[in-house]
C-alpha cells in the first residue's frame, strides 16, 4: 500500500517511539481503522491528512487510548498501551494531546490549566509548576494573560494555551487532532507558528491537519488516509508533487485548486 519502504524514509532518525501494528477498529459495521501499521520515530513529525471520515482523528486518538482498538497492538516507547486504570493514566501523561476544540478547563485560569497536570499527576511543587507554566506561556505568547479564564481568550490564544498545557507534562510525543480546524483564518498562523517551532526543536509529533503548508514545511513524513486505511505514505515533497494513488491525486486536486 505504501510507495516507499518505511526504513528508507525514517533512516537516520531516532529509535521507534510509537508503533502501531495491525490496528483495526470498527464502529458497528463501519471499519474505521483497517490494518494500520505505523512507526513514528523519536524526533519525527508525521502529518496525517485525508478527507473527512477517513479515520485520521480516530487513529490519532487511539494512540493515547481515547479510542479503544479492536485488534492489533500499539506500543509506546516499547511498552504496549495498558488497559484502563492507573497505568493508562501514567501513559497518557507521557503523551501530549491537542484537540480541535481546545478543551481548556473552563473553570480554571490559564495558569491553573497549565499547572494542573504537573501538580496533580507529576506531583511537582506548586511554585515550580507555576514557574514552568510562566515560561511555557511566554513561549506561546500568552504570558501576560495567565490570570484570565479560557473564555476570555480568542480561539487561537486558547489553542496555544492548550499546547502549553500539553508541553507542561514534558511529553515524549505530541498528538495534534486537527488543531486549527476550529479557528478563524487569521488565528491559524499563530498556532501553526508555535507548532513549527516545536517541530524545529525536535519534538516527536503526530499531526492530523488540513494545513498543507504546515505539512510541507514541518513534516518528515506524510500519511494519506482514506476510508480507514493508509493509502499512501511518503515524504512531503514526494507526496505533494508526485502522489501515487488515485485517491491522493483526487484529494490534492480538490484542496489545492483554491
Amino acid at each position: 500500500m505504501s510507495t516507499a519502504p518505511q526504513e528508507e524514509i525514517s533512516a537516520g532518525r531516532g529509535e521507534p517511539l510509537v508503533v502501531l501494528d495491525g490496528v483495526n477498529k470498527w464502529f458497528g459495521d463501519l471499519h474505521v481503522l483497517q490494518d494500520i501499521n505505523l512507526t513514528v520515530n523519536r524526533g519525527e513529525v508525521v502529518v496525517v491528512i485525508g478527507p473527512s471520515g477517513s479515520g485520521k482523528s480516530t487513529l490519532c486518538r487511539a494512540i493515547n487510548r481515547l479510542e479503544t482498538i479492536d485488534r492489533g497492538t500499539i506500543t509506546l516507547d516499547g511498552k504496549p498501551l495498558p488497559q484502563e486504570g492507573k497505568e493508562l493514566a501514567n501513559l497518557r501523561a507521557e503523551v501530549g494531546m491537542v484537540f480541535q476544540s481546545f478543551n481548556l478547563f473552563a473553570h480554571k485560569t490559564i495558569r491553573e490549566n497549565v499547572t494542573l497536570g504537573p501538580i496533580k499527576v507529576r506531583k511537582v511543587a506548586k511554585a515550580t509548576a507555576e514557574a514552568k507554566a510562566a515560561e511555557l506561556l511566554d513561549r506561546v505568547g500568552i504570558g501576560h494573560q495567565a490570570d484570565k479564564y479560557p473564555a476570555q481568550l480568542s480561539g487561537g490564544q486558547q489553542q496555544r494555551v492548550a499546547i502549553a498545557r500539553a508541553l507542561a507534562m514534558e511529553p515524549k510525543v505530541m498528538l495534534f487532532d486537527e488543531p486549527t480546524s476550529a479557528l478563524d483564518p487569521e488565528m491559524i498562523k499563530e498556532v501553526l507558528d508555535v507548532m513549527v517551532d516545536l517541530a524545529e526543536q525536535g519534538m516527536t509529533m503526530v499531526v492530523v491537519t488540513h494545513e498543507m503548508g504546515f505539512a510541507r514545511t514541518a513534516a518528515d513524513r506524510v500519511l494519506f488516509m482514506a476510508d480507514g486505511a493508509v493509502v499512501e505514505e511518503n515524504t512531503p515533497e514526494e507526496f505533494f508533487t508526485n502522489p501515487q494513488s488515485e485517491r491522493a491525486k483526487d484529494f490534492l486536486g480538490k484542496i489545492l485548486k483554491h
Binding site: 493514566a89 501523561a93 497536570g117 499527576v121 500539553a166 507534562m169
Partner: peptide, 15 residues
C-alpha cells in the same frame, strides 16, 4: 472534551 482533556494529561478517574 473536558473529561478527554483531563484524561489526556494523565489524571486518573478520581482526579
Amino acid at each position: 472534551g473536558q473529561a478527554e482533556a483531563a484524561r489526556a494529561i494523565g489524571l486518573p478517574f478520581g482526579g
